[in-house]
Design a protein around this nucleic acid. Structure first.
Lengths: 243, 243
DNA sequence: CGCGTACTTGAGCCGTTTCAAGTACGGTGG
DNA sequence: CCACCGTACTTGAAACGGCTCAAGTACGCG
């Protein structure tokens, strides 16, 4: 399973076609009046980042909030010794860095692009003003925070309640299959993550992930071909994850 | 270290004196106009619960949101085999069950009183209407969700990044000391939790908590007398938790 | 063709969990 | 007042499981 090769061209492709689509298709401001919408859009600064770019870092004071227009962003947290765990992989339309922008406390997580991304940034002052003045925006923020909390709870569950490696990996595969819209009925999906990153997402070492995945393959629960994964025996996988 | 004996009388005491103080002292609605505040207060139903009462259960569809007036509430999550982990111990003024009330998804955690509590309940329909109509309320909700997210991230950190028992317990003691306003300058505090509950809060077994605490006591990092704990050597404890 | 990155596989170590006994304390009923 | 009981805490010994270290393989890319 190798990381998907990402053409550097993607970056520039998105530069061309995404700015117009971002606001319309993301659905973040569809309820705003046209005039109000224009005013708000003017506050945001659209930026483009290559792969592996850093949006913000754990421990850093918040500069503002981020609306992801295109691409995927990895949200992670790391310890002093360099170990890190992945909390979430955010997709287009998600607001990032909210809790810090709201409280003013340092970011508790870091955000790093996994692919070339288009990101709309808003300074903290403007963000807070928007919260005060635009109730519709507040509701969007509330929805995002609610989702973030669910995700965080899910991670607490996999890290805290799933002690065995098989549980963690099974949960991870099923979660990913459920979230990925590209997942077909046969439960085929593409994991744009390395074993290392999967390990960070579930709280194991790289080697243990390899071993567990190999074990699943042996037991004919999954098939793998590079980053492609097919879930063959979902019921058994679910029973493993429920344990 | 035994659980604090709680007089059943506390329950009735709070019934007598808390309703008036709750709204004023919690500071949740201080910015509302007097008229608006009265209208909102009328929506909430004040209830009293004894110790170990259940406010809501994991997996249950959300009925509404809860504003804790007095007492402490344990927020926990449990696995199929009965293991459970404590996410947070909420205190007066906190809003509970928000993320589920917002999204409509089943509660991802359970809430159980640790002491007799006064709780103000609002039905989900009223809650959502309040969100739509009262921006000040939205902001309160945003603040609470932001705090919840920080707490959840903290738990992800202790469960995911702290592998060793000493790290987890040291972090727990310092966190608790920082949060507890009754903590004196000498770092004395009262832990209203059993070893079992501490174990659930940091992801260890009851026995390991006992052993680790005994180890700390041996090393003169802490002193314990029943539920009373004194942190004697904070620097060392911090270095252990940072590891 | 050689290099870098990611994956694979094996062997041994280490620390928590598990299981098992036993202690301490508060409350209850005789 | 005391014996009894339940809950919580303590302590020891053994087992399990993932981690660490180490070696080797596979693949894409310049």
């Amino acid at each position: 399973m190798r990381r998907l090769p990402v053409s550097p061209l993607n970056h520039f492709e998105s530069r061309e076609k995404c700015p117009p689509c971002a606001w319309e298709s993301l659905g973040t401001f569809e309820k705003f009046s046209p005039a109000a919408r224009k005013a708000f859009e003017a506050i945001w600064r659209t930026r483009f980042y290559p792969s592996a770019a850093i949006l913000f870092v754990e421990g850093q004071p918040p500069r503002g909030a981020y609306l992801l227009g295109s691409g995927r962003v990895k949200l992670a947290m790391s310890s002093a010794e360099g170990k890190s765990i992945i909390l979430h992989v955010a997709g287009p339309g998600e607001l990032l860095g909210l809790s810090s922008a709201i409280s003013g406390q340092s970011h508790e997580i870091s955000a790093e692009t996994l692919e070339p991304c288009q990101v709309n940034f808003i300074r903290r002052g403007d963000f807070c003003r928007l919260l005060q003045e635009e109730p519709e925006f507040s509701l969007k923020v509330i929805e995002q925070l609610s989702r973030d909390y669910f995700v965080a709870c899910g991670q607490v569950r996999t890290f805290g309640l799933s002690r065995k490696a098989t549980e963690k990996v099974a949960r991870f595969l099923l979660d990913w299959a459920a979230r990925d819209r590209n997942t077909t009925a046969e439960m085929q999906m593409t994991l744009p993550l390395t074993h290392e990153e999967i390990a960070q997402a579930v709280g194991l070492t790289r080697e243990t992930v390899t071993r567990t995945l190999a074990d699943f393959k042996h037991r004919k629960l999954i098939l793998t071909d590079g980053p492609e994964v097919v879930i063959c025996n979902r019921p058994v996988l679910e029973s493993l994850s429920a344990a």
